[in-house]
Design a protein around this nucleic acid. Structure first.
Lengths: 138, 138
DNA sequence: TCCTAAATGATAACAATTACAATTTAATGA
DNA sequence: TCATTAAATTGTAATTGTTATCATTTAGGA
């Protein structure tokens, strides 16, 4: 129940070289790449792969809960295989994205929000915007 | 410096009937509409308006800081003229969006994050996902 | 090894958005 | 008030990101 292949089987998804390559690429990347980027970077090792496969794979993995899909008001979606809850910090100048795994002390606030809204909250996306160190120094 | 027209002038944007209509529609809507929806709803009162104008207007207003653009992993962007900081609560079943204006007690957490990341945080997007009251009752 | 459903690859179709060029209009100042 | 000019609007074409289609290939089980 631990390896990626096992997780695929658990979800009744076949284990294919393409899926392994895409997931491995995502898992080793901290860059939150787009489909285009994934495709270009994997092409070298995998010249036969179609970009359609990349689209279908990230969608399948997203539906299986193995990757996270998000969009920061850009043209295309970004993907992230790091599923522990974490926030994204996005530079408004160079558009780099940094992960932040620290916790936020907002349990009570969420209770209040659930009470006020009638929703039962299951997950959240937290995106922070500002200038990264490099851009600020310029 | 208070009315929408004054804000436009301040940003060196011309005051046009189309801009007034689109902003007024957004300001009076709690629905976080897409360009398509804005266009369709305004068409009745404004048959000559082009959808290209709606696209350009929301982009101009977004750049001027008068509306907020966001995307919740759907096909098209959504727009919101309510600029006070607030969170969005999104139903994972019916995809309705509710605003939450309550505050979150995370000042210290953000300081810690700025320290750890080197970013200077200026704004944030908080999206919560769950089931709305209606969908949960079914 | 064979069988079958699922996955892949190539490409066409589609939908959201942007670019373009001609026309109209808001704002400025004489 | 009118003329001027830069900006905005329109309608449409082009572009881009994504999905659908379908023929071919392949993974996984019998």
């Amino acid at each position: 129940m631990n390896t990626f292949s096992e997780k695929l089987r658990e979800k009744k998804l076949k284990v294919t070289p393409q899926r392994l390559a895409i997931y491995s690429y995502l898992a080793n990347s901290g860059a939150h790449p787009t489909v285009e980027t994934i495709y270009n970077d994997i092409r070298a090792d995998f010249p036969s792969m179609s970009i359609a496969t990349v689209y279908k794979t990230v969608a399948a993995l997203r539906d299986a809960g193995l990757v996270r899909e998000f969009n920061i008001s850009e043209d295309s979606n970004r993907y992230d295989a790091h599923m522990d809850e974490h926030a994204h910090i996005i530079c408004t100048k160079c558009h780099c994205i940094e992960d932040y795994y620290g916790s936020f002390d907002m349990g009570e606030d969420i209770c209040r929000m659930e009470l006020a809204s009638g929703f039962s909250i299951e997950s959240r996306d937290m995106n922070f915007y500002g200038l990264c160190e490099k851009c600020r120094d310029k």
